[in-house]
Computed example of a mutant assay.
Amino acid sequence: MATRISKTPQSPTAKADKKRGDVLKAAGKCFRKTGFHQTSMQQICAETGLGPGAVYRYFTGKEAIIEAMVEDERRQARAMLLQMRDAESIQDALAMATRMFAERYRASGDAGLMTEVYAEGMRSKRTGAVLRRIEAEWVMGLTNILRVAQARGQLDASLDAAQTALFLTGMWDGMIIRQHFHAHDDPQALPAFFDNMIARLLARDGSKPETRSKAAGQPAADLLTGVEPAFVRPDTRQMSLI
């Protein structure tokens, strides 16, 4: 007699979370394809395979969907800051951020969706308010990481940590967009170049940090020790990507 294997039934909350996640994935697919304003709720419903009533049970409209996407970004940003905080050095922390940003947006193709969300935040006061809260949390968290590095003597103490956090964030945002338009190139080239340039710009006392070896794929020695290595000529092909 065959033994019937019973599946553990999902709780109502788990089912609702899954449905909600399905709607967000479908909406993201539609937004990437046609843009936020060109996408209708009917298109989102069709993509999910759910009726309008089911979709509106989780979200009141497109703006609510965008806000949910932003909140998901907030959770991921917090997780990234925690990993950066636990890194052994500021070099490792910043290199980790460069890699995580590059891999996440390259793998998911969400660079376009990111720009859609931020563009909507400039148009909508409601979405903009949510984005500003996330921006404030991210910049504050990154600023604190930089201040700890300054206190440890790993980073130039004369730098304004908050402004440096904004500068780094702007560089990472730019990298995400640029790598979308250079997807046919070596996927490691642009992140590696950004990683090296960030380390050079933030090196303590203006010393030149050792360049990461792209060929070997290994991280360089401590970029912020203040020891000046031999100058390594940058790869001009990588520079042309910016």
Rank of each mutant, 00 (worst) to 15 (best):
E137C: 05
Q154H: 11
A162Q: 14
A54N: 09
A161N: 02
V148N: 07
A215W: 00
Q150T: 02
T60K: 09
T164F: 00
R200W: 00
L131H: 00
S207Q: 05
K18W: 11
I44A: 10
Q91M: 02
R99V: 14
P187H: 07
S158E: 01
D72N: 09
L155W: 06
M175Q: 06
E137V: 04
S11P: 11
L146E: 01
I176T: 15
R178Q: 12
A26P: 11
Q76L: 02
R233N: 03
F36I: 08
V55R: 07
Q91Y: 09
M100D: 14
A87F: 07
D156K: 08
A27W: 08
G51A: 12
R126Q: 03
P52F: 07
A97R: 12
Q188R: 15
I65L: 05
V227S: 10
F231L: 07
E116W: 07
Q238P: 00
A162Y: 10
Q42L: 06
S124E: 07
L81K: 02
Q91N: 12
Q83D: 14
H180P: 02
D17T: 04
D205P: 01
A14D: 13
G128H: 12
D186Y: 03
R237D: 15
V55P: 05
I44K: 05
G141D: 04
R147W: 04
P52H: 10
T39H: 05
F36Y: 15
K214C: 11
